[in-house]
Nucleic acid binder design. Structure first.
Lengths: 212, 212
DNA sequence: ATTAAATAACTGACCGGTCAGTTATTTAAT
DNA sequence: ATTAAATAACTGACCGGTCAGTTATTTAAT
């Protein structure tokens, strides 16, 4: 009497790509692109390294797939939300900032901006893809909102391009900081307070009802 | 009659380390740590790879030497300037921001923050060194100034820790952006205007003479 | 002053380890 | 029996670090 050996593996053509992407995301954001071994990605996805190459042509290709599958859907949601929003521009922008923090900043996705910044020079094509399909689109939503706010007299006259960059910069920097040097800093800080202060300062500065 | 062959090389024990550090800085900030070959550093410094190891124990050691020799002197200058400054805190902080941009932001040193952020996880010891000897010290200057400004009634009450981070974040992010994704962005922007707007927004927000 | 012995700066060929990518073979599914 | 998903052993390029040997320079003897 012997127990039926379970299959050593199963054919799961449909499920593999998603599982590989998940595994790669986890390892890329914790170890970085270079330090991540495809052997380890495969192991985490429950396959062998060779199988990985049935679904992705190269390590870079896998990297692109991660960005494409994970980040772009979030950009699309943000665009749809902004398009159907009816409140003030300050409300819209505040919501976007807080939402960005909740969906990207405090999740494992926070590793993506750091990854893109670190690897841009090594993967020009991917960098271009990311700027075009993520950064530019996200920035457009904010720039448009600021432009509208100026036209409607909600904000004072200023360059919407600089302003939108100033609005997002402290957040992106915060996630980059958390994923890089923060672990080596003994002095901690309260990120929530940091973001709240930023929003206050920013809208104080851009608000139309001037103090002078 | 034949011309005297010039020496194939000269012994230059004193000059080598500085020249190697210069070469390494140039290559590290343009290609990144990993992509920089010690062979190329050596070539640029006008020596062989073996010679490099007479002066630096490892690639990481060379990296540390670069940070130590190039950045720390700037931190010291800033500390001295702040200690002897007599004007308002807003003037001091504005000067620091502009100075940071002139000395780091618009020079090749701009590559250092990006490099540290990208490589922190790979070189924990160096990351700790950098945070302790560069980041913390620079931040302390600004936090102290903001604290003083609050006490003297120049700024409104707020957390000086969050505020100092918010003051520097857009600048550090700007250099990281320039050295990573900006080359792949067709939409350019005016960094000087960006910084000017930032200073305006920030001091509008933190100023004591409230608008409400 | 000249020279030869000693020193130490410097070179460059080489090596071991790593890892992305390949391929011959096995195995599950039909 | 046939197919294609998956494996695992394999390759080869790459590169940080080493070290035996070379050469510029210094030192000491005459």
């Amino acid at each position: 009497m012997h127990r039926r050996e379970p299959c050593r593996w199963r054919r799961r053509k449909e499920a593999r790509p998603g599982e590989i992407i998940e595994a790669a995301l986890d390892l890329f954001v914790t170890s970085g692109f270079n330090a991540t071994r495809l052997e380890d990605v495969a192991k985490r996805a429950g396959i062998s390294k060779g199988t990985l190459y049935l679904y992705f042509r190269s390590k870079e290709d896998l990297f692109r797939a991660v960005v494409q599958q994970i980040i772009i859907p979030e950009v699309e949601k943000a665009e749809q939300h902004a398009a159907s929003f009816t409140g003030s521009q300050q409300e819209l922008l505040t919501h976007m900032i807080n939402n960005w923090w909740n969906v990207i900043g405090k999740t494992r996705l926070a590793g993506i901006p750091k990854l893109m910044v670190s690897e841009a020079a090594n993967f020009p094509e991917l960098a271009r893809f990311y700027v075009k399909n993520v950064v530019s689109r996200a920035r457009k939503i904010m720039t448009d909102a600021i432009q509208k706010g100026i036209e409607q007299g909600e904000f004072r006259t200023c360059d919407p391009n600089s302003a939108s960059r100033l609005l997002i910069a402290p957040l992106v920097f915060a996630v980059i900081w958390e994923k890089s040097l923060a672990p080596f800093d003994s002095q901690t800080y309260d990120v929530e307070d940091y973001i709240r202060s930023h929003i206050n300062f920013f809208f104080d500065g851009i608000s139309a009802k001037g103090k002078d």
